[in-house]
């Protein structure tokens, strides 16, 4: 591999990283805290690439810097990012995750003030499954998520959460009940905001219990900037 190609690969990888972290695309893959590190490391790679390209064009001697052929593979993520731009994980990944929530050890604080109160799906599931919905009784909640088909019919309101990056995403699912007729058969991955109340009957105390939500209104929305909880 020639020095020109090496420097171009460095430039391409660096600019791909800067490109996704400049806007909000990086949120499809990693968490928000990574942004400054992505910008810095992308910029360092671009700088290394520019300097190497100048070296190569001026034929500055650099010993025998044999670049490994394996470096060609770095074009794979670059191509995937620039040309395919894979979207955030959706219904397919959510359907694969059979665990819906994990037990909490700390006691749950009351819901914040507000009517309706906007909350994360994972928070709703935890409160409904591991606290028998005590903190949800009598409150109107607003939840935003996407549609994942329920193999037994109907669909689950779903949102994925990241621990570190999309490789370890896990899903929170809620079963909406009392859906208006036009919302019964929404296609998978449709994003919706649902207003409603907790109702018992979804099972509690197990990791795959899926709680219920009595729907009052449902609106189709655009995918949020950060698609994960």
């Amino acid at each position: 591999m020639t020095r020109e190609v090496q420097s171009i690969i460095l430039l391409l990888v660096g600019s791909a990283v800067v490109r996704i972290s400049w806007g909000t695309t990086y949120l499809n893959y990693v968490k928000e805290v990574m942004r400054p590190w992505l910008l810095i490391s992308g910029a360092i790679l671009v700088l290394l690439g520019v300097l190497a390209l100048i070296d190569a064009l001026r034929r500055r001697p650099a010993g025998h810097a044999h670049a490994p052929g394996i470096a060609w593979l770095l074009l794979l993520p670059v191509v995937t990012i620039f040309i395919v731009a894979p979207p955030a994980l959706g219904a397919y990944a959510a359907a694969r995750d059979v665990t819906n929530s994990t037990p909490v050890t700390t006691s749950l604080a009351p819901l914040p003030a507000g009517d309706p109160v906007a909350m994360y799906l994972s928070d709703y599931v935890t409160r409904a499954v591991w606290d028998e919905g005590r903190t949800l009784v009598g409150r109107q909640v607003e939840l935003t998520g996407f549609v994942t088909a329920n193999p037994a019919g109907g669909w689950w309101l779903t949102r994925l959460q990241l621990l570190c990056c999309a490789a370890d995403a896990f899903a929170s699912k809620i079963e909406p009940v009392n859906l208006p007729a036009e919302a019964v058969t929404l296609p998978e991955n449709t994003w919706v905001t649902v207003l409603g109340e907790w109702v018992p009957g979804g099972g509690t105390g197990t990791e795959n219990s899926i709680p219920l939500l009595q729907v009052r209104t449902i609106t189709e929305v655009l995918e949020p900037e950060n698609p994960y909880d």
């Binding site: 499809n28 893959y29 990574m34 995937t80 570190c164 990056c165 490789a167």
Partner: peptide, 25 residues
């Protein structure tokens, strides 16, 4: 890449690379 399985794989692939990159640098 329109297949959901391929798409999910591609997202996970990019996520692993992007997450690891600052540490590798």
């Amino acid at each position: 890449f329109d297949q959901p399985a391929v798409q999910t794989g591609a997202t996970i692939f990019v996520a692993i690379i992007v997450q690891a990159l600052p540490f590798l640098v």
